[in-house]
Nucleic acid binder design. Structure first.
Lengths: 370, 370
DNA sequence: AGCATTGCCGAAACCGGTTTCGGAGACGCA
DNA sequence: TGCGTCTCCGAAACCGGTTTCGGCAATGCT
């Protein structure tokens, strides 16, 4: 048994070709081979090529842990996902990880992932990870408008990159989906259908994306020549329940919205819930638009019109940007964006009732229920 | 700039206390300290305690990468998630990772995660990960009934543990949720409501869980004294579209089911879709039960009755089991299970129509539509 | 008292790399 | 021919640990 184990280890070890094997085969010293492979200028091109060729032929790959103890870099990017009460289920993670790991493994990097329960927990975990050299830096997702993680990492001089655009974004590297454009597009879409009063349910202003989406909503109204009415806006919703309450509030207005734009698909669930219990027909008597392209939107009936986010591409871009940044720390902050793509659904349509008619209809429905 | 970077590195390095620091403070050699901490028998209890106490006081934590190059163990467990066409969105991942990383970090381990696009890709990635010592072993999720990953890892003698129970499970370590019990419970629940003809839509038999759920369905029928009718069973569904087709097939029977049990929540989406387009009232004219407790079930209307799976606990248990196994490789395979918890929803109710009445009703609806 | 054990620790090699330093040889130039 | 310079590589220290080996002192035993 025991001997079996050791035999296996030995078998695996002999399978691995070390820098000593390589140097022996080339009749060079370890040091020379190392410098040749790492691009030191004091190696002639001839021997450098000879070394590289031999390394390739023998299948040599440096053991990153051995490098790490001298260089301090472990070639692994860290991701600490914070499990808050509301967005733990967000399924974007799988696709995002796919992109990240793909970009990482393309460069020979790996992804070290950890989870935390709170903000302070996150920072503690990040500290431990860099201290133990388990991560050279971090990808920050769900960035806050004023993110303590950014403050911490900047102070400690640990490399990082954001998925999202925080408040003071000039010096930080980020990648993001421009959801403000999506929100504006949604307004255009709804306005062309004939909607005049369009409500908005936004999420917590702590998050960076909340700002972008709210701004997009206002920009869209302006572009379509619709007047902004503060009563049509409810912000700070995080769960379907919050959104349901917001929906009831919006529908209780004397001139209620005929369409509601939600900052996330999850919030749209609350709108559906209220509409379904009231007996309001979604897609005609009330139009709804979400954002995220989450599978829950596909589970709704009628299917939720929303904006699909390519989280995989985001992950891939973020990973590539991060690694490039680690390669050349002198380079300035890199920034990039993509757009979300609209995916229509049965949840929008021409308004069959005007705002006034809708108010009366709601009164009737309430009377029937009572 | 450059000097800035090096200064930071030095600052971080001095912050880290090495085994040499510790040995110097104790007036012992590195070797003695190392053996003391690693439980070698040739160290007196007195000095061992002295060392441990000092280590704690000085905040010494061995650098895992340095250990790894000698021991071969990197104290990181690998997870390769395979992004198949259908279950990529499954949101279980976040909770599962939470459990895994929690268990890992409790023991000072980390989680290295990678993604792959196919089965052969997965095995290639696993091979690279152990070769480069980025993972000491693997957690296998979504295990297949006959899983090539298991065959590979057993052959290569790489430690692993399964989330799920494959075909030949005697010698493998696993943890699983006993979905067969849930399926049987679902039958009981439906039978008590008055359902006699209960359909079943199962997923691809490749997956290990498909077997458990199908068996549970049959066991439930037997327990309730209901006869098994092969025509009420459709298997091999992977997407809502497949499930929709299966639903149409079941409803076209001369004596259609008044309730449909689905192997997953995702499949239930297909049932809803057909019912909604036909105008069939879910929860009265047709009852539906799912499995997984996915958020999409909460987005459906009426809310899907399903079985919630505690993926976090599963992750935590799997992580702990794996690490324990690595600590003592001689130990026999460990195995454990938990049960899913039923979460009622509006999708089930007493059948307002018998099977025959439902068939006539469906004929009417079809006539109206045509 | 003499001798073989045993317990406990130091010394040193080792793991797989990186990095510094110094020197041999080729070369240019007077 | 002599000398300085430059190119390129070897030698060796180092990183932070682990593990083997050997020896000294204290014990047990006759």
């Amino acid at each position: 048994m025991r001997s079996n184990g050791t035999m296996d280890r030995r078998a695996r070890d002999t399978a691995r070709v070390t820098i000593s094997d390589l140097s022996r085969a080339l009749s060079l010293t370890k040091g020379t081979v190392s410098r040749a492979l790492n691009g030191y200028p004091d190696i002639s091109e001839a021997t450098r090529n000879r070394v590289i060729r031999a390394a390739q032929a023998m299948g040599y790959r440096p053991l990153s842990q051995a490098q790490a103890i001298k260089t301090g870099r472990s070639c692994s990017l860290g991701l600490v996902v914070e499990l808050s009460q509301y967005d733990a289920h967000r399924p974007f993670l799988a696709e995002f990880l796919a992109g990240l790991t793909q970009a990482a493994s393309a460069e020979g990097w790996t992804l070290t992932i950890a989870t935390s329960e709170s903000e302070t927990d996150t920072i503690r975990i990040m500290r431990d990870l860099v201290r133990d050299r388990k991560a050279d830096g971090f990808i920050l997702q769900r960035v806050l408008w004023e993110d303590p993680r950014i403050a911490y990492l900047e102070r400690e001089n640990v490399p990082f990159i954001c998925y999202g655009r925080p408040k003071n974004r000039e010096k930080v590297s980020y990648f993001d989906v421009v959801s403000e454009a999506a929100m504006a597009d949604a307004i255009t879409w709804l306005a062309r259908l004939g909607h005049v009063r369009i409500g908005y349910i936004g999420s917590a202003p702590d998050y960076a994306y909340s700002h972008a989406r709210r701004d997009g909503y206002r920009a869209g109204l302006a572009a379509e020549g619709l007047t902004y009415d503060a009563r049509l806006v409810v912000e700070g919703a995080l769960s379907p329940d919050h959104a349901a309450q917001a929906t009831r509030q919006l529908l209780a207005l004397e001139t209620p919205p005929t369409a509601i734009l939600c900052a996330t698909d999850t919030l749209a669930r609350g709108v559906y819930e209220v509409a379904n219990t009231l007996g309001l027909k979604i897609g005609s008597e009330l139009s709804v638009v979400g954002y995220d392209g989450a599978p829950e939107g596909q589970a709704m009936w009628p299917r939720l019109a929303t904006f699909a986010v390519d989280n995989r591409q985001a992950g891939a871009r973020l990973g590539a940007m991060f690694i490039a940044r680690m390669q050349d720390p002198e380079a300035p902050a890199t920034q990039g964006v993509i757009r979300a793509t609209f995916t229509p659904g049965g949840s929008t349509g021409r308004p069959t009732l005007t705002s006034d008619q809708l108010a009366r209809h709601l009164a009737n429905l309430a009377a029937v229920t009572a």
